[in-house]
Design a binder for these strands. Structure first.
Lengths: 150, 150
DNA sequence: TCGCTATTGTTGTAATTGCAACAATAACGA
DNA sequence: TCGTTATTGTTGCAATTACAACAATAGCGA
């Protein structure tokens, strides 16, 4: 049986840890970088959708977003037709931060993929997308309180 | 440029989240499962080495380990030749928990790899190992306070 | 339309997490 | 050998994280 879970976990924690250390320069604390880039790339997204996108708890996302708003990285806007939802947009400051984050991500990617051929890298990317799809739906069921059978 | 970072992050958070929810049955709280399996599989490992293995902060590991000891999942033993270090061992309770965790991991792996051929899965595993090696060394340098150039 | 369910957002609470800073021992070079 | 550096382990913070539970609106079926 191939065990990919642990490696994925280790890789993710390493990358996250590095990112968090480096983004202190931007006055971003732990985890915040995740939200900023996504909001920048998905203008008008609502918090719940964002939480789903990066797979964190709704309430965690809510607080992180509120903090980012207070720091003026993003702003919330009312929806003209639906007064329950709040749409998120990056401010200029946020957009700049997002740019910086993307550059750092590119570097991390290069480091991570060092020694892999282009084809291998592409291949890895494709496989990960499949894995992501599989795991995502599992997450949704478990998060909604359902038990997996085994 | 191939971006694998985000997918890895998403996959890892999903898996971790699922694991944490499911391991409540074992009275294991968030993150604890990581340590138990590794200690079970590496009898006599010391906390710092363990932290390095799973890529969490030394102090985080220290506390998690102390809690696991209090709960009798693991035990610390003195080293006869080096009175600074404390060696970790799984108790019977811990070993059973580790077994359970491994079973759950296997299921998660199967779900994650659903739709991939055996060869694809193996290939993915190989590529991830390379990525892990790359990222690990980067983590070590950054964790020790060094800046990456870019 | 009306009533029930789902969605969206927040807060209370409790826990993990990680950085700084500390002590104590080990390891190592001159 | 001795002094300096590295390793190992812990604690004090301050922050993120997530589960529960709540309110409020939206959405949907009969």
């Amino acid at each position: 049986m191939v065990d990919i879970l642990r490696d994925i976990g280790v890789i993710a924690r390493s990358l996250d840890s590095i990112a968090n250390i480096e983004f202190k320069d931007l006055d971003l604390t732990r985890g915040q970088y995740l939200y900023v880039v996504r909001i920048d790339e998905n203008p008008g997204i609502i918090p719940d959708r964002l939480a789903d996108m990066i797979k964190v708890d709704r309430t965690t996302a809510s607080r992180a977003i509120n903090k980012l708003e207070k720091q003026r990285f993003i702003e919330k806007r009312e929806d003209p037709e639906n007064k329950k939802i709040k749409r998120l947009f990056a401010t200029e400051k946020g957009a700049e931060a997002a740019e910086y984050i993307r550059r750092e991500n590119t570097l991390s990617s290069e480091v991570a993929l060092d020694g892999l051929t282009q084809e291998e890298a592409r291949n890895l990317s494709v496989l990960l997308k499949k894995v992501k799809r599989n795991v995502e739906s599992d997450w949704n069921t478990v998060k909604k309180g359902k038990k997996r059978a085994y």
